[in-house]
Design a protein around this nucleic acid. Structure first.
Length: 190
DNA sequence: GCCTTGATTGTG
DNA sequence: ACAATCAAGGCC
């Protein structure tokens, strides 16, 4: 991982999540700029880390800059970036990115030709990038997984909404989107 | 377009 | 039982 990505992820998750928009995530060269993320942390009933470290959530309490990958609804994989400070059980759920690198590979993995349906949703994004439970705990920058800053920093308009698909603490507006992006999972969601 | 439903499995 | 989801099918 670059020094700047390391520094970014070491921060508090509510600062990290909006700042991650526009950063390009790639796995073996396949990926693109993040356009939608959600924050989860330990004092948050909706978070897997709520109640302390146990079972699958262990990686969330480890050092920042690693992937936390879990299975959702017994069907899909979903990937997070663990944030700091270490020991706090916080992570950013990767909900959507703009397909830019390795688009043909994404189409093959997804069985889907429409670019807007390649990475618009956490399950879709993980499938398009080839992330699975085997990547749980993998450090960013280890070779397969890279995170690069936006080409032009500071010109991304961030919008917030409630988080999606949860019932607890649903009123916290911890979902962050690039305003106007065509590649978010649910553009009209409030 | 919006709403409903089934798939499928680790976790508490 | 339930879940940080998705795709397909019905209906409008």
């Amino acid at each position: 991982m670059t020094a700047t990505a390391q520094a970014l992820l070491a921060g508090e998750v509510l600062d990290v999540a909006p700042a991650l928009l526009g950063w390009t995530l790639t796995v073996d060269g396949v990926g693109g700029p993040l356009v939608e993320v959600e924050a989860y942390r330990e004092d948050d009933p909706a978070s897997h880390s709520f109640g302390g470290p146990r079972g699958r959530n262990r990686v969330m309490f480890g050092p920042p800059g690693r992937l936390y990958v879990y299975r959702a609804y017994g069907v899909h994989w979903c990937a997070n970036l663990v944030t700091g400070p270490e020991g706090h059980g916080a992570a950013v759920l990767l909900r959507a990115l703009e397909p830019r690198h390795g688009i043909e590979q994404m189409r093959r993995r997804r069985g889907q030709a429409d670019d807007r349906l390649l990475c618009s949703g956490p399950g879709r994004l993980a499938q398009a990038l080839g992330l699975t439970g085997g990547d749980d705990g993998a450090p960013i920058g280890s070779g397969r997984i890279a995170l690069h800053p936006p080409e032009r920093a500071g010109c991304i308009e961030v919008r917030t909404t409630r988080r999606i698909g949860i019932t607890k603490a649903a009123d916290r507006r911890w979902r962050y989107l690039v305003a106007g992006s065509r590649f978010v999972s649910r553009p009209g969601f409030r």
